[in-house]
Structure formats: C-alpha cells, structure tokens
C-alpha cells in the first residue's frame, strides 16, 4: 500500500529534478502511466514503418531508396529503444506487443493515413517527423531515466529524418507544375492529421495534468502544438508551400501564429479504429508477428541444441 509519506517523498524527488530509475520506489499509477505512454510510443515507431515501407521499392532514385531504407531502419531502432525502456518497468515485450496487436493498446493515429504519392514521403519527414521531434525533445527531459535516455538517442537520429523530407519537398515544390501540385496536395492532406499528433486540447486531455505533475512530460499538448506551428509556418514559406488553413495568421500580441479549428471528429474516429488505414495496418503487423513465430521458435531451438552440444563437449 502506498502511504502519503511515500507519495510526498516521490513528489519532492520529481520537483528537485531527480531522475527516477527502474528499481526506485514509484507510485503504481506512475508506473502504469509510463507503461501506457512508452509502449504506445514504441508501437507508433513500429507501425510507422508501414506507410514509408510502402514506397521503398518505388523510390525515384537509388539515392532516395537508400535514404528511405536507412530511415525506416531507424524507426525500427526507435521502437526497440522504447520497448527496451518500457521493459525496465517489469513488463514483458511480448505482452506489450500482443496488447496492441490483439488488445486495447494504441499507436499514433497519424499512421492510419495512406501514403498516396512519393510526395507523402517528403511530407512525412518534414511534418510528421518534425512534430515528433518537438514532442521527443521534451520527452528527452522526462523524469523516468530510461525513457529520457531512449528519447535522447531518438532525437539524435530524428533530425536526419526531418531534413531529408524537407529537402526533398523543397525540390519538388520548385520542380515541374505537376511536381508542385503533388507536393502541395500531400501537404494539404497531412497538415491537419499532423496537428492532431499532439493530442486533444489541454481542456480535453485528462492525463496531461498528472503526467506534468510527475515530470513525465514538461509541456502540454497545446504548448507543443503551438511551438510546432510557429516553426513550421516559416519553413513552409521558405519553400513556397501553402499551409491549408485560411485562419492561419500571426498574432502580434502573443507572438505566435493563430490557427483554425482542428477537425476533432476525424481524430476521434481514427482513434476509435475507423481511419482510412487502421484495419490494414493491424492486419500487416499481425501477419508479420504470426509469420515470424516459427523463426523465433527455430532460433530458440537452435540455441538450445548448440548449448547442449557445448556442454557435452566440455
């Protein structure tokens, strides 16, 4: 049973900016919340390989193919850093994975949208990874040591993801009229879903206050979203791309960019499983997991026999 004294002492450690390590005492609720958000983050990295993997065989050049391969491999790495971090909380990776494949765990809704052209690959790098950087830069300061360290590692690699996308989009946006149209069309489709990546408004985000109190997060959804919009507006302008929001304007008083209403109905319907690609994504992930089972079994058996042989020989 958790006593008030334990909770108070824990809060003091958090407020002092101390990092919590796996074996430290922590409230059960802190552990639960971490498992939820860390595994959700890990699942997102893994599912995030699918929309981009879709284009590897059809990349426009060998250079772009190598870049995309490296990026998709990084996403797998990010997923693994995060699973590794989550496992320090005393959960098994297998249970985490099976909870999103067959249970109730979620992954980021952004990956339930289709990638229709190669311009989508540019925009995913620029906007989706750009948004992820904003979020993960904050999470690199998280109060839970393993989560902070995983995010730090991720951030180091993520800026390559963003830059390759932005560079490609800039090229496309200054290309032939057809290429320009393709670039703008992709931005139009991804802009709002990207803003939704930061989650519901603070007033509709029941977990936010608790996560901030415990230092898991240090900024609210709306703060992060605003920061992202501020820096993206300039980047769009610089390459001649229009962000599809007629209400977007600079607010002299606040020093930030105001933007229009986010289509939350769409957000909730995707979260509930009715996005354009939800079923497809889960189907692909289950297939990979189930068809990989014999490999895991065979390798386990091989390791067992090899060990037996070594023991006999000695």
């Amino acid at each position: 049973m958790e006593t008030q004294k334990q909770l108070d002492e824990f809060q003091i450690r958090i407020d002092n900016g101390e990092k919590i390590e796996p074996k430290d005492w922590m409230p059960e609720r802190y552990r639960k919340q971490l498992i939820r958000i860390m595994s959700q983050h890990a699942h997102s990295e893994i599912v995030g390989m699918l929309p981009e993997g879709n284009w590897i065989t059809r990349a426009p050049s060998l250079k772009r193919k190598m870049v995309l391969l490296a990026k998709v491999q990084d996403e797998a790495g990010h997923g693994l850093y995060l699973y590794s971090g989550t496992e320090t909380l005393g959960v098994k990776r297998k249970d985490l994975v099976e909870d999103y494949l067959y249970g109730t765990a979620k992954y980021s809704s952004i990956f339930n949208y289709p990638t229709l052209t190669y311009a989508d690959i540019c925009v995913i790098g620029w906007l989706v990874d750009g948004a992820a950087i904003v979020n993960q830069t904050m999470l690199a300061k998280s109060s839970y040591g393993p989560y902070a360290r995983a995010n730090l590692r991720i951030c180091k690699e993520e800026s390559f993801h963003k830059k390759q996308g932005y560079e490609m989009l800039a090229k496309m946006a200054s290309g032939t009229p057809d290429q320009q149209k393709m670039a703008q069309d992709a931005v139009n489709r991804w802009w709002w879903p990207t803003l939704m990546m930061f989650g519901p408004h603070d007033s509709d985000s029941p977990n936010s206050a608790e996560l901030i109190k415990w230092g898991v997060k240090t900024k609210t959804n709306d703060e992060l979203r605003r920061h992202f919009v501020d820096r993206t507006v300039m980047e769009a302008e610089a390459i001649g791309i229009t962000l599809p929001d007629p209400d977007l304007r600079y607010n002299e008083e606040t020093g930030h960019w105001d933007f229009g209403d986010i289509p939350w109905d769409e957000f909730w319907s995707v979260v509930k499983g009715d996005g354009p690609m939800n079923r497809e994504r889960i189907k692909a992930r289950r297939k990979a997991y189930e068809e990989g089972e014999w490999v895991r079994k065979a390798a386990t058996e091989y390791a067992r026999k090899k060990k037996l042989k070594e023991e006999k020989a000695s």
């Binding site: 496992e87 098994k92 990776r93 297998k94 099976e98 067959y102 289950r286 997991y289 189930e290 089972e293 895991r296 079994k297 390798a299 386990t300």
Partner: peptide
C-alpha cells in the same frame, strides 16, 4: 484473433 498467444515465443533479454 487467430494466433497462439499463450505459446508465442520470446527470446531472452540481454
């Protein structure tokens, strides 16, 4: 939900 969840294999952790 067709899979053999209870028997699925997990490799040891290093």
């Amino acid at each position: 939900m067709s899979t053999n969840l209870s028997t699925s294999t997990e490799w040891p952790l290093w």
